[in-house]
Design a protein around this nucleic acid. Sequence first.
DNA 1: GTCTATAGGCAGATAGAC
DNA 2: GTCTATCTGCCTATAGAC
Lengths: 199, 199
Amino acid sequence: MDVMKRDPEDRTRTATQILDVAEQLVQTRGFNAFSYADVAAELKITKAALHYHFATKAELGEALIARYAARFADALSAVESRHATAPAQLEAYGNLYLTVLREKRMCLCGMLAAEFPTLPIPMQDAVVRFFNDNETWLTQVLTRGRDEGTLDFAGTPAEAAQMIVSGLEGAMLVARPLGDIGRFQAVADQLLAGLRRTG
Amino acid sequence: MDVMKRDPEDRTRTATQILDVAEQLVQTRGFNAFSYADVAAELKITKAALHYHFATKAELGEALIARYAARFADALSAVESRHATAPAQLEAYGNLYLTVLREKRMCLCGMLAAEFPTLPIPMQDAVVRFFNDNETWLTQVLTRGRDEGTLDFAGTPAEAAQMIVSGLEGAMLVARPLGDIGRFQAVADQLLAGLRRTG
DNA sequence: GTCTATAGGCAGATAGAC
DNA sequence: GTCTATCTGCCTATAGAC
């Protein structure tokens, strides 16, 4: 297999397509509400072929979170290199969520958070890690912004980070049923622009 | 059947028990992740008996939201009569969510919001109504608080109401996987106490 | 109002041919 | 790497006895 067609995890093209379709289904419908049959139909392969690439649904789920988290980490690195100031980095962070919502998707890990008690333990652990990593990154940005004088907020940077993650996840959760993206943006503005010094 | 054992919707005791169990299951696992078998086992009746009380799962789902929304409306009325000031009413509002989270449950409609595209249309409509009603109530409280001078916030009362609902729902969503109720309280404090004049 | 029995379908998963 | 065929089990739902 041509190495150029492999993804960073060294997957075949089919395996990558499976992840793409499954990811879309989980983000829109949830992990418990999609089936191997759904993915197979979309890709016009059989369920058996799916099981070759991902033996169990739990295994597929773990791969989904791992890829999502890796991409998110890459996106955060890109935010750091493209935006110098803490306020700009926070705005770019909010836009990561907005891009997902525009595709009428929920954050993968936000969706899995709702289904949490029904998930296999390895998936649960990965979801928790995702949120912790996000808040660690945000806490660093917030700390730097306060030290530099570009951000101003009450409480600790860690508390503000919890507020941002909760607010953005909740805004996505509610905006999708209401079919109102503007509503997400309004909340994101209050959350993030409100932290700007002389905002 | 003794009238004292009926609920406000004039349901039999069994029907009420079914709603109680189903509600707990939906709030912890989601609508798509519970079955008639789960409820029947818990109540030690058969699946067929369940279908007598609620012919279809969609019908059961509608009844669940209707009862939940009615109780929530009652709770909001109680908040208004027990607390005179807007800040106190907001705090009581946040405590409604906290009580749910303490039982390791997600807000019923927050959970259903995640599963939204998979729900029958009548359930979807009821979920949307729930969020709209909540924000209408909050908007009234916020408007009055600002007029009375007990609350102070940037933007419109409607925007602040969206922020509160999004923030509380998101805080529940994330706090449950992390097993950290204190985290919910920290976010709720920032959201609600932060609106207090001279806060 | 609750039961037994069962229908009909789809779920996740496996065996083995190609 | 993908297929056909199949298994087992659970799902929602129904028919009809009690």
